[in-house]
Amino acid sequence: MDRLGLRQQLQNYRTPYEEESAFIADFSELTHDPLGYKREQLEGHFTASAWIVNKSRTHTLLTLHRKLGRWLQLGGHADGNENLIEVALKEAEEESGLTSLELVDSTIFDLDKHIIPERPHVKEHFHFDVRYLFEADINEPLIISDESVSLAWITFDSVVDMIGYNPSILRMLEKTSKSEILL
C-alpha cells in the first residue's frame, strides 16, 4: 500500500474515539508531502507500529523503549517507505526477533499523533503513527534489540499496571477486546 492507498484508508477510517478522530485530517494532509515518510521532515513524519497480540487474545507484546524509557508497542520510522504495513512488520520483526507475525487486517487499526521530546541533535517533533494489528505465537523466543531495554508479553489485565496511563495504548487494548467479540 502506497500513499494513495493510505490516503484512501484515512478517508474511510472511522473511530468512536474523539482523541483519535481529531487528527485524521492531519494524517491525510501529510500523505500529500513526499517528505512526510522521512524523518528529515522536521515538523513531523510517519511512523508505523505493530500492536501484537497472541492468538487467544489474552496478551500483548510490549517493549521498554530505550530512549523514551516507557513501555510501548513495537514500531518505528518509515524512512521513505510509503507502505506502512511493511514498515510495521519490519520494525516488529527487528525489535522482537519474532518470525510468526501475522497481519490480522490490512486496514488501519489505530492512529496516534504524539510529540517526541527534544534530544541532542533532534528537535522536538511529531510522530504520525499508523498502527496495524498483528498476531504472533506467544511461545516463540524473543530477541531484544538495541532499541529496547526489555520485551514482555503482558496480560491484558496487567497492561495498566505495567504502563501507567497511556491513552493510546489503552485505546488499542480496548479495541482488541472489542474485536475479540467480533471474531
Rank of each mutant, 00 (worst) to 15 (best):
P167A: 01
S150R: 15
Q73I: 10
L35S: 13
V149N: 11
L89I: 05
L89P: 13
H32T: 13
T58L: 04
I85C: 03
I163D: 13
N54S: 02
H45Y: 14
L151R: 00
T155F: 13
S21A: 09
Q8Y: 09
R119I: 12
Y132R: 09
I108S: 09
S145C: 03
T176Y: 10
N54L: 00
S56P: 13
I108H: 07
G164R: 11
E147G: 09
E93C: 01
D129V: 06
S145M: 03
I108T: 12
G5H: 06
I52F: 01
A48S: 08
R3P: 01
D146L: 06
E124I: 04
W153G: 00
I154A: 02
G76Y: 06
F46R: 08
V130H: 06
K38C: 10
D157V: 04
N83W: 13
A25F: 13
V53W: 04
A92Q: 11
E19W: 13
D129S: 11
M172C: 14
M172Q: 15
I143M: 03
D33I: 09
N139Q: 11
S145H: 09
L72K: 12
Y165W: 10
H125P: 07
D79M: 11
D110P: 03
E135K: 01
K178F: 07
L4G: 04
G36S: 06
G97L: 00
L173K: 08
G69S: 04
L84A: 07
S150V: 04
W153L: 00
I169R: 04
Q73W: 15
S150P: 05
P34N: 06
T99K: 00
H59R: 03
L30E: 12
E140V: 00
A50Y: 08
D157C: 02
L72N: 10
I181W: 15
F134W: 07
R14M: 10
D129M: 08
Y37K: 03
L61R: 01
E82H: 04
G44W: 14
A92E: 13
Y17V: 12
I181V: 13
G36M: 05
K90A: 05
G164N: 14
I143G: 00
D137Y: 00
